[in-house]
Nucleic acid binder design. Sequence first.
DNA 1: ACTTGATCATAC
DNA 2: GTATGATCAAGT
Length: 225
Amino acid sequence: VALTVIAPPRTKEELLARASALRGYTLGALSDAIGFPVEGDSSRTKGKVGELVERALGATGGASATHDFPHLGVELKTIPTSEQGKPRESTYVCTLAVAEADRAEWSTSWARAKLSCVLWLPIVIGRTARERTIGAPLLWWPTPEQENVLQADFDEVMGTIGSGGIEGVTARMGRWLQVRPKARDGAPRATAWGADGARIATVPRGFYLRALFTGALLRDPEALP
DNA sequence: ACTTGATCATAC
DNA sequence: GTATGATCAAGT
């Protein structure tokens, strides 16, 4: 099966139209159509769904630190959901650079940039990966009120790091945006600065959006503050 | 049932 | 090591 290369969408409208056209398709059908295999134990193919949909929609970001659609400033996020559309997992946003966290600001953060415009694509659960189906897409950008909440969560984490160090940060912090480990394993391998200014090693962290938030967003984008 | 902390694959 | 894409599985 040849790998199909799809040109990037020229506008957000075209991107949304393409995503809407995928609604109802199984991942198996999509996989066969563009020649991108999605097979095997889901524990060993964790990122494959995202890669499949990226290719199907013409995303170009790849593994570099850019938006999935750089010319549109749009980030693509798949969300595993129940048949009722309820998210089964949180959504990874980006890495938290723990070493520079004391100087980070929301306005210039990569987290804000990534969340400034997101194409959410629900992936409904199935018996196998190939039987999962694509749901209704949502092109979203935060309202000022929503961004205030996200910034407050961000600031809380950064303030905690600034005063007590990274080890004071817990996933229990944050109403919508939280910080959790993001690494190959639990080994401390990232550089951070302790409260006393000493250089310490810690587990790499990343920002995640709680399923509570994405669930509310998918249910009714207008209902959120 | 849901969340937190841990983990899997791949590119550079 | 960093980033990208996520889901697993133990703890509550």
